[in-house]
Amino acid sequence: MAQNNAIGHGGHGGHGDHAGHHGSLTEYVIGFLLSIILTVIPILAVVDDWMGRTATIILLLATAALQFGVQLLFFMHLREEQGPRYNLVTLILGLIVVVVVVYGSIWIMDHNKMY
């Protein structure tokens, strides 16, 4: 019944060992540098007009998604969750709803042009 054991652990690792989890300076610095790089790339792509419209949009969405991942892994420490990963499962459920709402709205309205 590891599951019961983990209920109380919601966010991060196990008992005690406070210094051990919640990240290290290296982790934060790497995360910060990665997010700067992932911000500069899309800015340059748009300002300097690197490529076509569709390719740029794909690049922008990709760097934004990667940046979201960097925040989750390096800053929110999603990796360090132990036991049944309730945080991760909740997040995945949320993301499914997000994708359905956003993509679903665009898709359905594309088929509902009133003009």
Binding site: G11, N87, L91, G94, L95, V101, I106
Partner: peptide, 29 residues
């Protein structure tokens, strides 16, 4: 453990907040 449970509760709130933002993004798009 109670404090960890409260952290998890806040995490659930954040996910609902994420869904709130997704509706605003969908509307904008």
């Amino acid at each position: 453990d109670l404090e960890e449970l409260r952290k998890f509760g806040f995490w659930i709130f954040l996910i609902t907040d994420l869904i709130l933002f997704s509706t605003l993004f969908a509307t904008y798009l």
